[in-house]
Design a protein around this nucleic acid. Structure first.
Length: 693
DNA sequence: ATAGGGTTAG
């Protein structure tokens, strides 16, 4: 092929030669053949006369990530005359992700005196958008206006994207509004901008405007719209988007399927997502990842891990996103065995562990009660490579295990190292202080938020209310909420309600509950909590009323499950579970345990039983709380020298908490319990939470 | 001969 090409040189025109070699260069699938052809065309002098082939080499070298060679080819040309080769080189830098090189190359182009054209700007703007170079982008914007390319539809779409990418969406909108002509791509770019800025409502609003202007969604538009609807968690609109995609034959595009899948996942429609997933014959990594996420986000972490087993035997390769999802599933499960299994798997399969994934793995170990490993991983990162998330992970890790002082030390160290704390840092520090009863320290951190100009969000107030509440400072807590005026959300009132439960303040609790039932009428937890407060004060009438309310609204108390690991498997125990041959021993063990503990001074605390039944029955129900069954199972099966790990999906009740303390003292066992809020480390008859939880 | 909007995770 090559030889015949050379022969052509002798008797054919330059155009035919170009087309011929163009085909050869394009079909190169490895670097060495490309280099070979390059050297032949250089020595024969053909390349010198062909701008076209030069451009082709630049692009082809960049396809193999040989940017230096590409630049070398560029430099060897007489490039000062036209913009074309400059544009080509810009394209090479941009498409391979060398954004800062693209921008400095553009600067060089201007310095050399070459005029940019309408093809130049989309590349440079893309580089600005991705590397968040807003000031540079603005400079280019003024050059666009100066050079008279401000009305080019491609250039304007790229400008919209640049401003949106840099987070200044209103500037993006200004460009969009000024356009004299818009096509579908421009509309989609602007809709996407709102979606990325988490302004789903505005995105949908603009979509309707677009449709009134006579444009129909294509598959790219629908992908973006599905994201917006998913963000809003709008189940009604989800079906409409899905139906539109099917009606217009867009559901054949895999990205559409994937984004619709993600949309349903975010709306909590697990079954619909499963159906779509099952009917999708050609899945890619994103399809699998989306389904894994669907399970994880909807609290079905075990299903996610099961699905991963199916993914492994399918012919899909997984990537670092898959790893991240699995790690978060393990964090949710709190299972040490699964955590190490997934970590090993990631290492064995050479998944690229970037800092984000590393931080996520640290967090996973912390949430699986293995703080030592989390700490070791933190220390393995050189200080200059740490990011804010690494610090946040360590702070929250200490916090959830009740090490408030250590969390504060890390926070101070972080400041010493000149890291800027962010909103997550403060959530972690404040909740750490709260869990350890460090009120003064917490107040100090709360006031430091202004120094670092981190806005105070409801979640930060919720931590403060929680902190005051646990310390018995209910008035301070309530005053803080009043300061928030209408900004108080359910998290804040929920924290107050919990404090009222701990300190038995029914009247303030009623006030909090009023607000909560108004803000979140479907949230079962608040009804249960208020009902328990009434039960504490033996106000069975109000308990009955609340239960009636819940029934009328179709709300049910979520089933409590306590998980315990044994023999590389998770065993789940539910309260009052049916007796079967497997659990009979466990029930007997509970009976025996309660008798023994009573001799040591344990008195059952019946106050936390939700149901209004006779006291004798209550003792019965109480004995068979899932966490007690799990504990008995652990005492029977797990070697006495090892700690017992239990993970509960709800808050531990006070009676179980007391039993766990007694067991740790009387039988000399170490017990670690994770509930929805934090970890409890039981040892020598005491708990690390100091009975505040 | 060159260009603009895109799905998963955080």
């Amino acid at each position: 092929m090559l030889r015949s090409g050379l022969n052509l040189c002798n008797n054919r025109g330059i155009f035919e030669i170009e087309t011929h070699f163009d085909k050869i260069i394009q079909s190169c699938n490895n670097l060495s053949s490309l280099t070979q052809i390059h050297s032949i065309l250089t020595t024969t002098g053909i390349i010198k006369h062909s701008v076209h082939l030069t451009a082709r080499f630049i692009i082809k070298y960049s396809d193999f990530f040989q940017l230096q060679t590409a630049r070398f080819v560029f430099n060897a040309t007489d490039h000062e005359s036209s913009s074309f080769l400059w544009n080509t080189m810009l394209r090479a830098y941009t498409n391979t992700g060398f954004y800062s090189d693209a921008l400095s190359f553009y600067s060089l182009m201007r310095k050399t005196g070459v005029r940019p054209n309408n093809f130049t700007f989309p590349f440079t703007l893309k580089s600005c958008a991705v590397s968040l170079m807003l000031s540079y982008g603005k400079m280019i914007h003024s050059e666009i206006v100066r050079t008279g390319f401000g009305s080019d539809i491609y250039v304007d779409a790229a400008l919209v994207d640049m401003y949106a990418g840099c987070g200044v969406i209103d500037d993006a909108r200004k460009v969009f509004d000024k356009m004299s002509k818009r096509d579908l791509v421009c509309w989609t770019a602007m809709i996407t901008a709102y979606e990325q800025a988490e302004r789903g409502e505005t995105a949908l609003c603009l979509l309707r405007k677009m449709q009134r202007d006579g444009f129909c969604m294509d598959w790219v538009t629908i992908v973006t719209v599905a994201s917006a609807v998913g963000q809003l968690g709008d189940a009604q609109n989800s079906r409409a988007v899905h139906a539109y995609a099917i009606r217009n034959a867009l559901f054949n595009e895999l990205p559409v399927v994937n984004s619709v899948l993600a949309m349903y996942a975010k709306c909590g429609e697990v079954e619909i997502a499963e159906t779509i997933f099952d009917h999708t014959k050609q899945r890619n990594v994103i399809t699998w990842n989306t389904m894994l996420t669907c399970y994880t986000q909807n609290g079905l972490a075990s299903e996610a891990l099961d699905l991963f087993e199916r993914m492994k035997v399918s012919d899909t390769d997984f990537n670092e996103v898959t790893a991240l999802i699995l790690v978060s599933a393990c964090s949710y499960l709190g299972s040490r065995q699964h955590a190490t299994k997934i970590h090993d798997f990631i290492v064995q399969n050479n998944v690229d562990i970037n800092l984000t994934l590393w931080n996520a793995i640290m967090d996973m170990y912390a949430k699986c009660a293995d703080l030592e490993t989390a700490l070791r991983m933190f220390k393995e990162i050189p200080v200059n490579r740490l990011d804010v998330s690494s610090w946040n992970t360590l702070i929250s890790g200490y916090g959830m295990h009740g090490y408030g002082k250590e969390a504060l030390q890390v926070y101070n160290k972080m400041k010493d190292e000149n890291f800027q704390p962010n909103h997550i840092t403060f959530t972690s520090v404040l909740s750490a202080c709260s869990h350890s009863g460090l009120v003064n320290e917490g107040k100090k951190c709360f006031s430091e938020m202004e120094i670092f100009s981190v806005p105070k969000e409801p979640k930060h107030y919720a931590c403060m209310v929680d902190m005051y509440g646990r310390a018995g400072l209910l008035n301070e807590a309530y005053e803080l909420i009043k300061d928030m005026k209408s900004h108080a959300n359910d998290e804040v009132w929920g924290a107050l309600l919990l404090a009222c439960k701990i300190h038995g303040n029914t009247s303030l609790a009623e006030l909090a509950a009023d607000n909560l039932f108004h803000l979140e009428p479907q949230h079962t937890g608040y009804y249960v909590l208020m009902s328990n407060i009434y039960a504490d004060s033996r106000n069975w009438q109000e308990v009955g009323k609340l239960r009636g309310d819940m029934k009328n609204k179709g709300l049910r108390k979520p089933a409590a499950v306590s998980l315990i690991e044994y023999n590389n498997e998770l065993h789940g125990f539910r309260t009052g579970e049916q007796l079967d041959s497997l659990t009979r021993d466990v029930y007997e063990k509970v009976e025996k345990m309660v008798v023994e503990l009573k001799m040591e001074g344990y008195v059952p605390d019946v106050s936390c039983v939700f149901h209004d039944v006779e006291d004798e029955d209550k003792h019965g129900m109480l004995k068979y709380h899932g966490e007690k069954l799990a504990l008995a199972f652990g005492l029977m099966n797990i070697d006495a020298s090892l700690p017992i790990f239990i993970n509960k999906n709800l808050r531990v009740c006070s009676d179980c908490h007391s039993v766990f303390k007694f067991v740790s003292g009387v039988y000399g066992r170490k017990i670690v319990v994770r509930d929805v809020n934090r970890f409890h480390h039981f040892e020598d008859g005491l708990c690390s939470c100091n009975d505040y939880w």
